[in-house]
Design a protein around this nucleic acid. Structure first.
Length: 513
DNA sequence: GCGATCAGCT
DNA sequence: CACAGCTGATCGC
């Protein structure tokens, strides 16, 4: 446990000049990229928050800039603040550096931000809009293809698509919100190759949109993650173990002079909130992906100590997203399952899941019915790596031995389930499937699970259930009001200006007074 | 042939 | 709606 019991919060942040070098910044330069508005379409600061704007505008960029962050540490290791090289704070701000600071610089570019014509429409967007884009996982076995019966094949679609112009491939650059100011750290930034000046790459949890870019060829620096996440990175992505540095939860680790502590994130197994306590007194909390809950309000590090900047998982930062507690959903799923089995005893119960996460849904059914859980070999391998005895002991290796199966979310289409049922036709005559996700929740059913309508086609019945591993709007609000950070940086849905402004207005509302 | 990464899709 | 992927095409090597 962290020993810190600092009684008095640090003084309010002062504005600091941007670090700089290169050419003099001119707001009219490259207006096509930076424009006149504070933010570009991809969610990046598009205007220097100079004295004339920083004080009067409450744009995201200006707001963020005012938090007094020091990005110089990410420019080069020598400039990390402990260097004796003169840092001429009197100079004018330099544009070349801004590109680096805000993550516009391509790894292979020479100060240019021009985007060549791209058939895919892809430009160097700094990564904001691509945060949620697909990354094919490594060669860690297809959970989908091996569905237990060797002869079972997933329905193949015959989609035809155009290829893309390889000559226009471009190395993305790391967006600013993945860089931790005043440090040489990044969080979940593996798909940008070598990030300039980065000495430690943190991985918040093992989901592909966060580990994207990690492979056995990784060689850009040490990866800090939870022990469980580390095991999965090694197992599934074949990353050289020399790069993997597991950090135990609830333990303060000093990395490059920064005190780092992982806290349970209530997301998927191994997911961490990352708490940074800098030598300069700044304290940052990066939530990775998380579902805020009351328990977090007793995390010692978060009580009575001001967090200066909160990097917040804003996936559901909109009042339309309201969903019940996980426990309520589990109770509901168990109840539906029992009722269904009473009416149709020869039913195969299927729970959809991604690689990791949602384990409690099938574990709850398993416990309530006293049945084992079937998962295919590649999924079992992953689940066993959790070191979660209750789960490990509930698994079985043959689909015929239990009525409860876990399948990839993509297998929950009717056609796929119909084929799946055929492979077990000796034992089962119907399928009851659950699709646990945060966003199926419609306006109507938001407060009443009983209003959820299953979708049925013949003997296949599917329920979308609002089992979320991200915070609801009110959970986010309660967490922010508990934490009362100086600044909040949204890490999700920040790709367009309207969303960003809306979120910042919620934040202001929550923290006013 | 293999691994990586794209668009399109769910 | 948007989570956390999956699929096939196509690239570099």
């Amino acid at each position: 446990m962290a020993p810190s019991t600092a009684a008095s919060p640090p003084p309010p942040l002062e504005e600091e000049p941007l670090p700089h070098d290169g050419e003099t910044y001119d707001v009219n330069d490259d207006a096509a990229s930076f424009g006149d508005v504070p933010l570009d379409d991809e969610g990046f600061p598009s205007q220097l928050p100079g004295p004339e704007t920083a004080s009067e505008k409450s744009s995201f960029a200006a707001d963020f800039y005012r938090c007094g962050t020091d990005w110089s540490s990410l420019l080069s290791p020598e400039e990390s603040g402990r260097s004796d090289s003169a840092h001429d704070s009197g100079k004018k701000l330099k544009q070349a550096n801004l590109f680096q600071i805000w993550g516009f610089k391509r790894n292979d570019a020479v100060g240019s931000v021009e985007c060549g014509p791209s058939r895919s429409g892809y430009c160097d967007d700094g990564g904001a809009s691509s945060e949620r884009k697909a990354v094919k996982p490594g060669n860690w076995g297809s959970i989908l293809r091996d569905t237990g019966k060797e002869e079972f094949e997933n329905t193949k679609s015959s989609r035809k698509r155009k290829g893309f112009g390889g000559e226009n491939r471009v190395t993305r650059s790391c967006p600013f919100y993945k860089k931790i100011p005043g440090t040489t750290f990044t969080v979940d930034a593996f798909r940008y190759g070598c990030v300039d000046g980065c000495s430690a790459y943190f991985l918040s949890h093992f989901h592909c949109d966060h580990y994207g870019g990690l492979s056995k060829k990784w060689s850009h620096g040490p990866i800090y993650c939870s022990p469980l996440t580390g095991r999965l990175v090694q197992m599934c992505l074949s990353v050289n173990p020399l790069y993997i540095h597991p950090l135990e939860f609830n333990t303060e680790h000093v990395i490059d002079g920064v005190k780092v502590t992982f806290l349970e994130a209530n997301h998927c197994p191994g997911a961490a909130l990352i708490y940074f306590d800098l030598p300069n007194g700044q304290r940052y909390l990066h939530t990775g992906d998380f579902r805020a809950c009351k328990q977090m309000q007793s995390y010692h590090l978060l009580v009575n100590q001001r967090v200066n900047v909160l990097y917040l998982d804003t996936t559901y930062c909109n009042p339309k997203y309201m969903f019940p507690s996980k426990q309520d959903v589990l109770n509901y799923v168990v109840k539906i399952t029992k009722n269904h089995l009473k009416l149709h005893p020869r039913t195969l119960v299927v729970v959809g899941a991604y690689s990791i996460g949602k384990e409690c849904v099938y574990l709850a059914i398993s416990k309530a019915l006293g049945v084992k859980i079937y998962a295919n070999a590649s999924r079992r391998r992953i689940l066993l790596a959790f070191g979660w005895p209750e789960l490990s002991d509930s698994l079985c290796t043959k689909g015929n031995n239990t009525l409860l199966h876990v399948l990839p979310m993509s297998s929950l289409r009717f056609e796929t389930l119909k084929d799946y049922l055929k492979t077990y036709k000796e034992q089962f005559t119907a399928i009851l499937a659950f699709r646990p996700t945060g966003w199926t929740f419609s306006e109507k059913t938001r407060n009443d699970l009983e209003l959820i309508k299953p979708v049925s086609k013949g003997n296949i019945t599917t329920y979308g259930v609002p089992y979320s591993e991200h915070s609801s709007f009110t959970e986010l609000r309660d967490f922010v009001q508990f934490l009362r950070p100086d600044k909040i940086i949204p890490t999700v849905n920040a790709g367009n200006a309207a969303n960003r402004e809306k979120m910042q207005s919620y934040f202001r509302d929550w923290l006013k007074g």
